[in-house]
Each structure stands twice: as structure tokens, then as C-alpha cells.
Design a protein around this nucleic acid. Structure first.
Length: 552
RNA sequence: UGGGGUGUAGCCAAGUGGUAAGGCAGCGGCCUUUGGAGCCGCCAUUCCCAGGUUCGAAUCCUGGCACCCCAGCCA
């Protein structure tokens, strides 16, 4: 039996023990195609498909497309792409609630027949008034006691399109005094003269989610119908429908949805970020959407690991985004080829290195994985180093370059700073004059000297230019919320750097390729890249203990 | 003061009457040609609170408290 323990697996284990479903485990992921999937959906996807995988069961994908006014084919496409990208396969079991519209309609007829459903002429406002409140019972609709014949007739005419939107509904006849508001004669069908992305204009009445969902699970013979906490109150309703219909009953299990620090997760807010132009779109690398994370450079593996690590429970929680970042670093550390890139170039001239000489130095592609081999990087008299790797007045414990100080150039030589060239006007440092120690060539026998610091570099004559987009958290408070959640949007969540210098081998990199820029972080080639113009996204920085030291 | 849920470390989360796993974060140290990675160590005498049962309680019982969800013809 699976290693990972959580309350859902306990339930399944029990059901297997008691043979409740004949040893079957059949789950499903039921998104509404009204937006893009986000990391919270990823949790659900990993949960449902993971259960199916571990218990040798099945997991369906079913679009809950019961509201034609909000749903679009574009979302149907993106959702499938995202689930596949995450690494899951639904086989031939891709379903739509709209596939069941005819069956659902027949079920409704059956309830009318039993006297358990009725056509109600109350409008939305009136239904609300009749519903009562949290502490007071509701009142029966004046149309509640229509005859079966009258209900059949009216419901038929609703379907035929004889009535305008909102004028009538089909309601379940349950209990207007129930303390559970979901049981106060809930609406099953509403009139909506809208074109559905799949059924077109075949229907002008559409089932509500509450009416469609349980029966859809039943029709698919789902064993464990996993959903989020807010549907716990609906479970008695779903069970009531199934019981009255006398059909197969899946077990609904609710779990707590994912919240993450420094981000928002509701589709409504995500949509607002997109429409308000706060981000570039659903796949903006700062978005917590699957497509955004993908573009940012996240791997499916890291997201799956994340889902495993955070677990599943019924208590509401907010997971530190650092956990997600750790999963990513852990994955990329093992797989991403290392490469040198200078984001904010500072020119360095090695005075005692012959002009025109070029050495091809051997560099390891990934110290975590020898099988990734080595490459060669050109070294010459004029180089670029990171501006941040030089300080005129170095603070304590600063192991990098400063006047008179020595540092190792990774895979190359130890150099010493012997002069600083400044801009006449601004006084800013524009060039460093250095000397190198020929005895310190990496890998050579006479290379025995040690220095504290090692920095990355790139040969000026050989470097390729690139644009680099640095991303930071989208919000500057850990839990953006309330009415003014947009006030905490981080104004510097995107910083675009042009004129970055990267090692020549990167000139041929393709979109989505991932690298570690040594000492800086993990980067991936953005889709905006084109032959001449290479664009990198910073996926995540490396852990930076120096930054911590400097802060304190 | 209706109904449904949830309370274990800064954040997640195991634990199912036998004496508080693990991860992230944090803090020390070792190692290091990435201030990366890796390695070692520290980090809850106590589980929302108060009583009770028991040789023994985070687990069982009673009573409180706090927080979340529900009054869409959204899902």
C-alpha cells in the first residue's frame, strides 16, 4: 500500500478492506472551463491522478461545463495542455458534463414523476426572499404543490424555449426549513438562452452545478469524489439526489484548497490581474497559473514534488512559497546545465595577458551529474564580470574583487585588481585593470594557490548579448487579501535587463531550455526569444547566504 | 445567537491510549574553484483552553474558546 499517509488514503484503505467498491478506485478531476488552471488545481490534479496511479485505479477528466455564459473552448484546450504537461494521462476518459445533458434531463423527469421536483415561477429575488436566512427557516414556494402533469407540461415548455431567461426554474422539493440552506428546494434547471461551446443552441435550459455534479460522478462510476471544503455542505444534497434517483453513489471527500504566501489564488483575482494589465496575461511568469509557472521555467516534476510535500488535510492552510521554490531548486540542481552569464557587465582588462590570445578552458556542465560532461569556454584579455562582484570599499567578509584584492575566475585564473577606471562625469566604475597569475590555471599541475572567492565571467569578444527578465514575488505582503489586495502588488516584480553577456554556447538555445547561470540562479529561455534576440526568464535565484550576511 | 468544518513549532504535516515523524524557514559547524550543492548538529517536556476517565491522554469523555464556509438561477 502507498507510503504517503493522509486522511483520504485512510478512507480508501478502509473501503478496500471492506470491499465497498469491489476493490475499485476511480477518481476524477472536474474543472470548469472558465479560466486557466493554477497551482491550486495542480494540487487537486496530483491528488486525484496520484491516487489512481498508486491504487492501480483510474482518473477521468471531466469538464463541468454547465454554465455557457462563462465557459469557452480556449479554456478547454489550455486545461488539457496543462494536465498533460503536469505528466498525467486520462486515456480515453475525457468527459463533459454536457455529454450528460440528455441523461440529466431524464433524471429530472424521473424526480418530477416522483413528486420530488417542481417548476417554480418565482424570480431570483423572490427565491431569495423565500429562502429565509441562516437562523430563520424559509417558506414554501406558492408553486410547490403543482401537479405532476402541470410540472411535466411546464418543464417541457421550458425546454422548448417558450419562456424568457430567469422566468422559471425547476426545483427539487426537499425542505424549506432545513438548517442546511442547500436543502431548501435548490434550483436544478435555469432558463438560459445562451450558446454553449459544445452543445450550441440545442438547449435553453441548463442544469446547475449542484444538479449535474453528483449524477455525473455517478454515471462515471466514480468511487471517491474528491472536492474542496466548501462543498461539504452540498454533500447531503448530492446524496439526496442519488438516493431519490436510486442510482450508484460515489463517496464525496472534501479537502482544504491550497493557499500560498505572496500570491492570490482565486480565479476572480487572477482574472483581474490579467484584465487590469497588472501582468502580461494568464501565462505571465509571475502568475501562479500552470502556464505561467511553465513559462517561468518550473518543471512538472517540481510541481508534483510540491504537491506531495504539502500533503492533504482538512485544515485551512497557507503554504510558504519557499516550499515550492525549494522543490524547484532541488529538481533543477540535478538537471540544469551550468553556464556563465553576466547580467550587469563590468569590463575587466587583464594587463599581462597577451592581446589577441584566446584559450579554450574546460568547464564542467553539472557537478551533480558527471554524465552531463564538459564544455569549453573562451578566455581572453578583455572580459566582463558582474558589477556586483566588485566593491571599491569592500565590507567585511566580502570575498570578491576590490582594489588590490585577488579572486579566482571560475575555470580560469586568479586575478588581482590593480586599477579602477571611473567615468569622468558620474564617478561610476566603468572598467577594472587586473593582472593574472599564469601559475593558477584551472586543472594545471602548478595550480596550488587558494583564494576565498570565485566569480563568473565571460570573454568580451566572444560573448552573446541577451535580455534577462528578473522576476520577484507579485505581492510584497505574505497574505494579500481584503478589498485592497491590489495595493500590495509589488511594483518591481519584473525587472528587464538588456545588454547582458552570456557565454557563446547559449546563442543556439531554444525556448523553454533551462540553465543554471552560475552563482545567480536558474533561468529558462522565454518564448519571446528569436534567433538574434535571446530572452531569458529568471525562474528562481540560487540560495544566497551572502545576501543574508550583508543584510545583518 | 441555524448548519457544516478546523485547531499539533514561524509555515505545512504525521500521529488512531504507551510517552510528539518528516519537510520548509531559521540558527550553528564542516566542506567547497558556484557565498550553489552536499554533510553534521540545534530548533514542541508539549498538542487551542479548562476539567474528567486511565498506571498512562495530542489521542477517550464533558464544557468552553478561536477561526473558516453556507442566505448565486456561479462552480
Amino acid at each position: 500500500m502507498p507510503e504517503r499517509r493522509n486522511f483520504i488514503r485512510e478512507i480508501i484503505n478502509d473501503d478496500l478492506r471492506t470491499n465497498k467498491y469491489g476493490g475499485r478506485v476511480h477518481t476524477r478531476f472536474p474543472p470548469e472551463p472558465n479560466g486557466y488552471l493554477h497551482i491550486g488545481h495542480a494540487k487537486s490534479i496530483c491528488l486525484n491522478f496520484g491516487l489512481a496511479r498508486d491504487y492501480h485505479g483510474l482518473c477521468n477528466v471531466r469538464f463541468d461545463d454547465t454554465n455557457p455564459t462563462k465557459e469557452e473552448s480556449e479554456y478547454v484546450e489550455s486545461i488539457q495542455e496543462d494536465v498533460r504537461w503536469l505528466g498525467f494521462d486520462w486515456g480515453d476518459r475525457l468527459y463533459y458534463a454536457s455529454d450528460y445533458f440528455e441523461k440529466l434531463h431524464a433524471f429530472a423527469l424521473a424526480l418530477i414523476e416522483k413528486g420530488k421536483a417542481f417548476v417554480c415561477d418565482l424570480n431570483a429575488d423572490q427565491i431569495r426572499e423565500y429562502r429565509g436566512t441562516l437562523t430563520e427557516p424559509g417558506r414554501d414556494s406558492p408553486y410547490r404543490d403543482r401537479t405532476v402533469e402541470e410540472n411535466f407540461d411546464l418543464f417541457n415548455r421550458m425546454r422548448k424555449g417558450e419562456f424568457p431567461d430567469g422566468s422559471r426554474t425547476l426545483r427539487a422539493k426537499i425542505d424549506m426549513a432545513s438548517p442546511n440552506l442547500n436543502m431548501r428546494d435548490p434550483v436544478m434547471y435555469r432558463i438560459l438562452h445562451a450558446t454553449h461551446h459544445r452543445t450550441g443552441d440545442t438547449w435553453c435550459i441548463y442544469p446547475t452545478y449542484d444538479w449535474a455534479h453528483g449524477q455525473s460522478d455517478s454515471l462515471e462510476q466514480i468511487t471517491h469524489s474528491i472536492c474542496t471544503l466548501e462543498f461539504a455542505d452540498h454533500r447531503p444534497l448530492y446524496d439526496w439526489f442519488l438516493k431519490e434517483l436510486g442510482i450508484y453513489r460515489p463517496q464525496q471527500i472534501e479537502f482544504a484548497r491550497l493557499n500560498m504566501t505572496y500570491t492570490v489564488m482565486s480565479k476572480r483575482r487572477l482574472l483581474e490581474l490579467v484584465e487590469g494589465g497588472h501582468v502580461g496575461g494568464w501565462d505571465d511568469p509571475r502568475m501562479p497559473t500552470i502556464s505561467g509557472l511553465r513559462r517561468r521555467g518550473y518543471t512538472p516534476e517540481s510541481i508534483r514534488t510540491f504537491a506531495d510535500r504539502i500533503g492533504v488535510s482538512r485544515s485551512e492552510s497557507t503554504v510558504d512559497v519557499a516550499v515550492l521554490e525549494d522543490c524547484l531548486r532541488d529538481d533543477l540542481n540535478k538537471r540544469a546545465p551550468r553556464v556563465m552569464a553576466v547580467l550587469r557587465p563590468l569590463k575587466v582588462v587583464i594587463e599581462n595577458y597577451p592581446d589577441g590570445k584566446v584559450e579554450e578552458l574546460s568547464a564542467v556542465n553539472n557537478p551533480e551529474d558527471e554524465t552531463m560532461g564538459k564544455r569549453t569556454v573562451p578566455f581572453s584579455r578583455v572580459l566582463y564580470i558582474e558589477h556586483d562582484d566588485f566593491r571599491e570599499d569592500p565590507p567585511k567578509k566580502y570575498f570578491r574583487l576590490s582594489p588590490g584584492a585577488e579572486v579566482r575566475l571560475r575555470y580560469a585564473y586568479i586575478i588581482k585588481c590593480v586599477g579602477v577606471v571611473k567615468d569622468q562625469q558620474s564617478g561610476g566604475v566603468v572598467e577594472l585593470r587586473c593582472t593574472y597569475d599564469p601559475q593558477t590555471k584551472s586543472g594545471s599541475a602548478e595550480n596550488i594557490r587558494k583564494v576565498k572567492g570565485t566569480i563568473h565571467w565571460v570573454s568580451a569578444a566572444h560573448a552573446t548579448d541577451a535580455e534577462v527578465r528578473l522576476y520577484d514575488r507579485l505581492f510584497n505582503v505574505s497574505e494579500p487579501g481584503g478589498e485592497n489586495w491590489k495595493d500590495s502588488i509589488n511594483p518591481s516584480s519584473l525587472q528587464i535587463l538588456k545588454g547582458c553577456k552570456v557565454e557563446p554556447g547559449l546563442a543556439s538555445s531554444k525556448p523553454q531550455e533551462r540553465f543554471q547561470f552560475e552563482r545567480l540562479g536558474y533561468f529558462c529561455v522565454d518564448n519571446d526569444s528569436s534567433g538574434e534576440h535571446i530572452v531569458f526568464n529568471r525562474t528562481v535565484t540560487l540560495r544566497d547566504t551572502w545576501a543574508k550576511i550583508e543584510k545583518s
